[in-house]
Amino acid sequence: MATQAKQRLLTTAEELFYAEGIRAVGIDRLLQESGVGRASFYRHFASKDDLVVAVLEDRDHRWLDWLRTSVESVDDSAARPLAVFTALAERLARNDFRGCAFINTMIEMADPASPAHQVADRHKRRVITYLTELLTAADQPDPDILATELALLIDGAIVTAVRENSPAAADRAAAIAARLLA
């Protein structure tokens, strides 16, 4: 039962934080929406900040698993770096897309010492590490430098997609990436 309550808290918190923002959602709302009692909440999390960290860590693993699965379905390792943008375009086209949960967190929790900010930063670094792996496997020169450039394109496409309310930014970022990789 405790595991179910914890999972309901994590699921509800992720949905609400992503849709409305971390600071906009209070503990009372989380408890009401999840159907979990206050005592149960505090058995699982010492604070809302601890819940935020747990939500982000869980989302980090799921997001990177999704990206790997999407990209690695492409047989040609040389084509995989650009496949990242194809996967991204699919994500940006979702009806519930509200930007990157990690970018949003870094904006809301701007203090780099904040545990939530640190988890978000770690996620971005893990994406860069994955991009480096893809670029290395694709025999691209300077994979470390290219990975940071592609990560910048990804983040820029995400923010632009929010601003334009359109997934087209992923295609434009892919075109720029193709020029970088040529």
Rank of each mutant, 00 (worst) to 15 (best):
residue 106 M to F: 07
residue 154 I to Q: 11
residue 146 L to C: 03
residue 114 S to T: 04
residue 75 D to Y: 05
residue 78 A to R: 03
residue 81 P to G: 09
residue 180 L to M: 15
residue 5 A to Y: 00
residue 156 G to M: 03
residue 44 H to I: 10
residue 79 A to N: 04
residue 113 A to D: 15
residue 74 V to K: 05
residue 5 A to F: 00
residue 82 L to E: 06
residue 145 I to Q: 13
residue 110 A to T: 12
residue 71 V to K: 02
residue 59 R to A: 15
residue 175 A to H: 07
residue 12 T to P: 02
residue 46 A to T: 14
residue 39 A to R: 11
residue 121 D to W: 11
residue 135 L to T: 02
residue 114 S to Y: 00
residue 88 L to S: 09
residue 173 A to S: 05
residue 145 I to L: 15
residue 129 T to F: 13
residue 22 I to V: 12
residue 17 F to L: 01
residue 182 A to E: 10
residue 107 I to Q: 09
residue 103 I to Y: 15
residue 60 D to Y: 13
residue 161 A to N: 01
residue 101 A to E: 10
residue 118 Q to P: 06
residue 148 T to K: 11
residue 138 A to N: 04
residue 95 N to C: 01
residue 4 Q to M: 09
residue 53 V to H: 02
residue 52 V to K: 04
residue 47 S to A: 15
residue 122 R to I: 01
residue 100 C to L: 11
residue 176 I to G: 00
residue 101 A to H: 07
residue 77 S to T: 15
residue 167 P to L: 05
residue 111 D to P: 05
residue 36 V to L: 07
residue 157 A to H: 01
residue 18 Y to G: 06
residue 51 L to H: 05
residue 104 N to V: 04
residue 98 R to W: 09
residue 131 L to V: 09
residue 140 Q to K: 11
residue 3 T to N: 12
residue 81 P to W: 10
residue 25 V to C: 05
residue 16 L to E: 08
residue 87 A to E: 10
residue 61 H to D: 10
residue 160 T to S: 13
residue 50 D to W: 02
residue 55 V to C: 06
residue 155 D to T: 08
residue 15 E to C: 00
residue 139 D to V: 07
residue 54 A to R: 02
residue 117 H to S: 08
residue 111 D to M: 08
residue 156 G to Q: 03
residue 127 V to H: 04
residue 72 E to C: 12
residue 19 A to S: 13
residue 165 N to W: 05
residue 59 R to S: 14
residue 136 T to Q: 09
residue 63 W to L: 14
residue 136 T to N: 02
residue 32 Q to L: 12
residue 121 D to C: 05
residue 39 A to C: 02
residue 87 A to F: 06
residue 35 G to R: 00
residue 165 N to D: 14
residue 116 A to L: 07
residue 71 V to A: 02
residue 99 G to Y: 09
residue 91 R to S: 10
residue 41 F to L: 08
residue 92 L to F: 03
residue 49 D to Q: 12
residue 145 I to C: 06
residue 127 V to K: 03
residue 123 H to K: 09
residue 150 L to C: 03
residue 91 R to N: 10
residue 24 A to D: 12
residue 22 I to R: 10
residue 39 A to V: 13
residue 64 L to F: 02
residue 3 T to M: 14
residue 140 Q to H: 08
residue 120 A to Y: 05
residue 59 R to F: 09
residue 85 F to P: 03
residue 6 K to F: 01
residue 69 T to G: 10
residue 29 R to E: 15
residue 54 A to V: 08
residue 69 T to H: 12
residue 174 A to R: 14
residue 2 A to H: 08
residue 181 L to P: 08
residue 151 A to E: 03
residue 37 G to D: 07
residue 93 A to K: 09
residue 98 R to F: 09
residue 149 E to D: 14
residue 138 A to R: 02
residue 144 D to Q: 07
residue 171 D to V: 10
residue 53 V to E: 06
residue 150 L to H: 05
residue 121 D to V: 10
residue 7 Q to F: 00
residue 106 M to V: 12
residue 126 R to M: 14
residue 148 T to S: 14
residue 182 A to C: 00
residue 15 E to R: 06
residue 108 E to K: 12
residue 77 S to D: 14
residue 36 V to K: 04
residue 39 A to P: 01
residue 87 A to Y: 03
residue 126 R to S: 14
residue 76 D to C: 07
residue 21 G to R: 06
residue 159 V to M: 11
residue 138 A to Q: 04
residue 124 K to G: 15
residue 110 A to I: 02
residue 54 A to T: 07
residue 149 E to T: 07
residue 118 Q to A: 15
residue 83 A to S: 13
residue 27 I to Y: 03
residue 132 T to Q: 13
residue 147 A to G: 01
residue 143 P to N: 01
residue 61 H to M: 04
